[in-house]
């Protein structure tokens, strides 16, 4: 069942009179219980896309076009104002947000209020959506969540500063799951923690997802994390999706020069030790993106047409899409 459908979404920011094209013509689809890894560098638009899905864009963000259908509801129907900005306070969307779509923020250290106990903050989130819940039931739910993410129960009445980094991240996960959402957006959930903690949190996310059957969008710059966790992957570059498909397909038969560059620029821990290749140049300024294919100034295969025409995202094999004029000639028709 299709849970989330983003169709041709364009979100542009107005900054000092310039239009920054943060997300341009992005379409993704996600079924219940599925994990999508959204990979890209900083400034590629992946977080903007996530905030658009939660309808939490700032007031200088304008929806230029597109739709977000979640659970058969058009979310913009509730929030879109005539000028293209969002009314983030809309009552209907507030009922959906956190109850059905929740988010694990990157900096869990800052996501909690330092002067309230962590358990109370989770209770507050539950109370906001279920005001009639009894005190005992509320207590029971929080204990259940703590058991679930593996934080000892006696920590419920601690303040955020008494938690270690990994524990805070777990508490953040508990809070995101407090209302059993259908979709969780995880924005770089493990960037701020050490590798051993990262490994545990990822395992936990996979376990919980299996148990609860929720869908997840995992936003990260680390392709290895995606390889371990996601069913599907979408690679973003300069506000656009350049390649998407199942994780296995994209890793084994990548069909876009940016994906190729990204995969080859990570040192592999166990593979043969060979010189890393890297992508020359740096990501473009989205206030003034290059004409044609946005990747062409950095692309080793670029030809004339690339500077002229923007390549469409085409299906090169079932379920595998690439936005490159030469996807099949470079990478074969597989």
């Amino acid at each position: 069942m299709v849970l989330l459908k983003v169709e041709d979404l364009s979100v542009h920011y107005k900054i000092y009179g310039n239009w920054v094209r943060a997300v341009d013509d992005v379409s993704i689809e996600l079924d219940s219980g599925e994990t999508l890894g959204l990979v890209g560098e900083s400034g590629s638009g992946k977080s903007t896309l996530a905030y658009a899905i939660t309808q939490l864009l700032p007031n200088n963000a304008y929806i230029k076009k597109g739709k977000i259908i979640f659970n058969d509801q058009d979310l913009f129907k509730y929030t879109l104002k005539p000028d293209g900005t969002l009314n983030v306070y809309d009552e209907n969307i507030r009922k959906i947000r956190w109850k059905e779509i929740s988010m694990i923020f990157q900096a869990s250290l800052n996501a909690f209020n330092p002067v309230y106990k962590v358990g109370d903050q989770i209770k507050e989130a539950i109370l906001a959506h279920e005001p009639d819940i009894s005190e005992e039931e509320l207590e029971r739910r929080v204990i259940e969540l703590y058991d679930f993410v593996g934080i000892p129960r006696d920590r419920i009445n601690n303040y955020p500063h008494e938690y270690s980094g990994g524990m805070k991240q777990r508490a953040m996960i508990a809070m995101a799951l407090a209302l059993r959402p259908k979709l969780v957006l995880a924005d770089e959930p493990t960037t701020a923690v050490d590798v051993i903690t990262q490994d545990r949190i990822l395992k936990e996310i996979i376990d919980l997802q299996k148990k609860l059957g929720m869908a997840m969008i995992l936003i990260t710059h680390d392709v290895s994390v995606v390889a371990e966790v996601s069913h599907k992957i979408a690679v973003m570059y300069a506000g656009q999706i350049v390649e998407k498909g199942t994780t296995r397909e994209v890793f084994k038969h990548y069909a876009h020069p940016y994906t190729e560059g990204l995969l080859n620029s990570f040192p592999n821990l166990f593979g043969e030790k060979k010189r890393l290749s890297f992508i020359p140049g740096s990501p473009p300024d989205l206030a003034n993106p290059p004409k044609g294919c946005r990747f062409h100034p950095r692309c080793p295969y670029a030809r004339e047409i690339c500077a002229e025409q923007s390549p469409p995202l085409i299906e090169i094999s079932p379920g595998h899409y690439s936005a490159c004029h030469f996807a099949t000639s470079i990478y074969g028709g597989k």
């Binding site: 051993i196 490994d199 390889a227 296995r248 890793f251 995969l263 592999n268």
Partner: peptide, 25 residues
């Protein structure tokens, strides 16, 4: 051993080894 086992590897086919370590630093 745990440090090495905990590293995610960019290969969806590789089986992840179990990380044998307790708690945090």
């Amino acid at each position: 051993r745990s440090l090495v086992a905990a590293i995610p590897v960019p290969d969806p086919d590789r089986k992840h080894e179990r990380v044998l370590i307790k708690g945090e630093i």
